[in-house]
Design a protein around this nucleic acid. Structure first.
Lengths: 244, 244
DNA sequence: ATTATGTATTATGTATTACATATTATATTT
DNA sequence: AAATATAATATGTAATACATAATACATAAT
């Protein structure tokens, strides 16, 4: 039995000690408190000094735990008023993290695919909620793209596809996809570049997608969208095989 | 013009002063530093005291800014070693936020729909990556569900649908959907309860979905899934109309 | 010479105290 | 009664000191 194996064997008998810091404990206690007291959105929470006394720790620790909760958007503090529970923004912090340099290849690929999944999956909600005025809007957007040459022009993509989610009336998705797009572009650009002549012959433009929306149904929309995104699908499938 | 309107009018001319706290500024500066220095995953960042001196603020402020970055998973600190940049977990903090009580009806609905969208949109990736062994796995899961009576049995749903995402080989989605499911269940349960006899006649079970996967293609899968999720689609469309 | 143990150093974690500052409520002035 | 000054309050910031865990280095034992 090697030294390392010996250590592991010992570990299985003793189990390593996990040392939760005071801040960790306070954070947990605070979350428990909110739950126990059934505090809602907008309700005030105890003052820092009250928390110090109640938990028997320094204000430093209390404040660090509170800072964490503020960071995830669970509470808000006003200079004299104290602190209140807030409706947290699920996408908070995401904008700071969704940057190519700090994410692994793996995660970037995951996000790339997530956008593809969303574009395809939105169809049902889109058709359930679309109104005539929305189609007019989409057509207006098309006009501004008249000489739409490039395969992936950020601004165009953001506006057009963003509008799709707006029509589907899901605000979280609207915001999420707008955060996703820069990542998508990055992964796209980094991947194997296609020469112009390699562009798929039957490339589906936004205009064709609008047509599918106007005259078709969920399946037709998806068929158009799938072809619009074809090279991206091809690319991610190729990439994922390389990562394996 | 009311007093309030007057104030608003004045505001449009003057624009309120936004007062970034020291911590805010330090946080921004830190992020800039990481970018400027092109720091990567695992790289060490300056010591707290060095940062204090460099920026001319107290360690209190530095530490509060650092706590924020730790909270979103951007850096990690070791007791004597100092701090390093880490690959942030995009889903960090989400588990603390994805709780019915602290989210608005609107956001809950958004999340409910997001799951529906993902289940439908995953089809392409699923079929691009599925292997024979995966189908066997799915069938094994079916066996454990043999007397699958309920419309939405958390554990079954989590295992079956989770496996779908695993097959699609997107780890972030796997984890995301597992966090999403409790929310989904909550929204589902809260909504109008269906009596047994109201259950759709042609309710599609997991078994039928597996069949669609085994013998079909993306469209067939989606058709099955759409019918499997039909009452949920119906419900969310009804709900959203109520919210308008 | 090698291994185990003791020691010093280092950087983060926690505690304490003090003061600054913005907001609210109260008191005062006109 | 309305405008203004004042006090009280709770968070934001600063400074200092010490605790503690991890590492490197020195030392002693075999």
């Amino acid at each position: 039995m090697s030294k390392r194996e010996g250590a592991r064997n010992l570990q299985s008998k003793l189990r390593p000690i996990i040392n939760y810091s005071l801040t960790d404990q306070v954070e947990t206690k605070l979350l428990e408190l909110f739950k126990k007291e059934d505090l809602r959105n907008g309700d005030a929470i105890p003052k820092e000094n009250e928390l110090c006394e109640a938990m028997g720790v320094s204000r430093t620790v209390i404040r660090e735990a509170l800072t964490r909760l503020k960071t995830i958007g669970l509470i808000e503090s006003k200079k004299n008023k104290g602190m209140i529970l807030t409706e947290p923004d699920l996408l908070i912090g995401l904008d700071k993290l969704l940057q190519p340099k700090i994410l692994s290849e793996e995660t970037l690929q995951d996000m790339f695919e997530m956008r593809l999944v969303l574009e395809m999956g939105i169809a049902e909600l889109l058709f359930a909620r679309i109104k005539p005025a929305d189609i007019a809007d989409l057509k207006a957007i098309l006009k501004t793209e008249k000489d739409y040459p490039a395969l992936f022009e950020m601004d165009f993509e953001a506006r057009f596809h963003g509008r799709i989610y707006e029509i589907a009336r899901n605000n979280t998705l609207v915001r999420f996809q707008s955060m996703l797009l820069p990542i998508f572009k990055y992964v796209h650009d980094k991947g194997l570049k296609l020469k112009d002549e390699e562009l798929p012959k039957n490339y589906v433009t936004h205009a064709l997608i609008v047509k599918a929306i106007e005259t078709g149904n969920a399946e037709k929309y998806r068929d158009a969208m799938k072809r619009h995104l074809k090279i991206h699908f091809d690319k991610t499938i190729k990439m994922r095989k390389l990562l394996e």
